[in-house]
């Protein structure tokens, strides 16, 4: 039960933040990426603002043995880079620029994004569903990482 309450609060804060920051407005995201057009700096403030509490939270994990609801903290970050990280990030960036949406804002804006938002999310879920198969195929063609 504790973990569900944590998930609801965290999700609610995340959704509120995405909403009030303007990051569910595709023109603001594309405006930030569009350095050759009418550049919009908002996204940098959102990213900077989000990193501050998160950096403090990572520091707190060093002084606590376990999370509030038990279990354990994530292991130190993986340092291996690899092809899938780069290839996947490039593919993600192309889609992000094309529609101005990434996974979080796509869910946060579902209630007011109309049919367009639904189509995007349906395609995104399909992509997430086929990704493990594509990844396995890529690993067979090229050397596995």
């Amino acid at each position: 039960m504790g973990r569900l309450i944590v998930a609801l609060i965290a999700g609610g804060l995340f959704g509120s933040g995405l909403f009030i920051s303007g990051m569910t407005d595709t023109t603001k995201v594309q405006g930030w990426l569009d350095v050759f057009g009418n550049w919009d700096p908002t996204l940098a403030f959102v990213m900077g603002g989000a990193i501050i509490p998160m950096a403090i939270a990572w520091q707190i994990t060093r002084f606590r043995k376990t999370p509030l609801t038990g279990g354990s903290f994530p292991p130190p970050p993986d340092t291996r880079l690899g092809r899938n990280l780069v290839f996947g990030s490039v593919l993600f960036g192309i889609g992000w620029g094309l529609a101005g949406l990434c996974p979080g804002p796509a869910i946060a804006s579902l209630s007011y994004a109309g049919t367009g938002g639904l189509v995007f999310v349906a395609a995104m879920l399909t992509g997430m569903w086929i990704a493990p198969m594509l990844r396995a195929r890529l690993d067979r063609i090229a050397q596995p990482e």
């Binding site: 889609g95 094309l98 529609a99 086929i130």
Partner: peptide, 11 residues
């Protein structure tokens, strides 16, 4: 765009 974001983020 949706397919690229879906496949790319999972990859």
């Amino acid at each position: 765009a949706g397919l690229s974001v879906g496949v790319g983020t999972r990859m």
